[in-house]
Design a protein around this nucleic acid. Structure first.
Ligand SMILES: [Mn+2]
Ligand SMILES: [Mn+2]
Ligand SMILES: [Mn+2]
Ligand SMILES: [Mn+2]
Lengths: 219, 219
DNA sequence: TAAATAATTTAGATATAACTAAAAAAATAT
DNA sequence: ATATTTTTTTAGTTATATCTAAATTATTTA
């Protein structure tokens, strides 16, 4: 099927399309994958030749239907393995991403379907991200990031946009966990920082942190 | 740490040393890995430069202590993943080897130790092979292959030397499973084939099959 | 709109891990 | 002991996925 590098690009492009709109630039991909723009150009040509992306020189790329399907398979594998690591092997949510980056490239449809069944077909991974089923379908998980909320509004913390161990360890340190009710107390106009409140404590977070916390049932 | 290719060579050399004695030839490695002798020579030089093997031109190789430790880690991972696939995901013993060939290259000591604990520290994999513990130690598992047995002797079938799906499916078809008591009824001098008997049936196996079935408590 | 700047692509290089074909060394046979 | 055969190594090539530096195209600024 696809090489590891190809799978990583599919996943990255899929995620970037969702975050930043449907035409993804070379530099954006390069920065998210810690590679150089020239390397990205090379790979985009290859993906284009395989009909996985629509690519026009200098115009950015987006996934084709085939590419989207490929991306969803990789994402399904990644999130199921993360769920396995947390639920069955007792890893913490901040420890699983890098291991799942490796496990997601293991090739076997049967394996991943059996893993899905073993985990009782989870709908969300340990970071609150929806897990595509065997057909690539996910539940829709409508959330609002804190940076889009108004003063006085509140919701339930159900997901993160960044699941790097660095960010998650920061959240651990600040005693913020999935399921917490969070209320926006104040927004500092000077630097865009947020004063927020949980049931147990108050704290200040920067705008870039606020940009990565997803809340549900925001009112 | 080591690349996938390097890990595969370590594992192969370790297994060949045990089967055929301590100096392993280039061609033997090439045939077991489905590569060409010239490729093997290239890799042996690389492994030698990393102090993983002792290599002298035209004289074959053997693992150094460092290489042996590396090999045991790969084998530990392979066999633990095979055990997981059979015990937790309900794979059959003939379906797990190729998937484990991929999983064995996932890099994380913590992962494999947690997997070991999750499986309750199994001592043998689904093919009867001993699983090295975190320190590289295995139980000693003294077995005799049928091709070394005399007429009239019998034992318990506890392991296979070949765990390819082809061979295991052959055993399934012939209704031979681990735990079966097997008795040697006759040896055909003409072609070296074995007439054997289990509690439920009799059958004839070729010498090459007899060479791959390991029995315990042979009397 | 022309110049400056930024983004992207091309050209050429590197590392890994394969390969084929030819050369060299070792083992076997005459 | 020499010739033949087999095994192993060397030399040179290929594919993948990266890189740097230079060239090209697009965008922004003046
Ligand atoms: Mn992740
Ligand atoms: Mn996740
Ligand atoms: Mn195996
Ligand atoms: Mn096995």
């Amino acid at each position: 099927m696809y090489s590891q590098a190809e799978e990583n690009y599919l996943k990255t492009i899929y995620n970037l399309e969702n975050r930043y709109g449907s035409d993804v630039s070379t530099n954006l991909i390069a920065s998210k994958t810690n590679t150089k723009a020239s390397s990205v150009t090379d790979m985009l040509k290859k993906l284009s030749a395989k009909n996985l992306v629509q690519y026009r020189k200098y115009q950015g790329v987006h996934l084709t239907e085939l590419g989207r399907k490929g991306a969803l398979k990789v994402i399904r594998k990644h999130r199921l393995w993360e769920s396995f690591l947390v639920q069955k092997l007792n890893f913490k949510w901040d420890e699983v991403h890098d291991i799942a980056e490796q496990l997601e490239h293991v090739k076997s449809e049967v394996l991943i379907d059996k893993l899905d069944a073993f985990l009782k077909f989870p709908k969300l991974d340990p970071h609150g991200d929806p897990i595509p089923d065997a057909h690539g379908r996910t539940i829709l998980n409508k959330t609002v990031v804190i940076s889009e909320m108004k003063i006085g509004s509140a919701g339930v913390f159900v997901g993160v946009r960044d699941s790097s161990s660095e960010f998650l360890q920061y959240l651990n340190k600040k005693n913020l966990a999935l399921g917490d009710r969070i209320k926006v107390i104040d927004i500092e106009p000077f630097d865009g920082s947020y004063h927020i409140e949980t049931r147990t404590h108050r704290l200040v977070i920067t705008n870039s942190v606020a940009d990565n916390l997803c809340l549900k049932n925001v009112k």
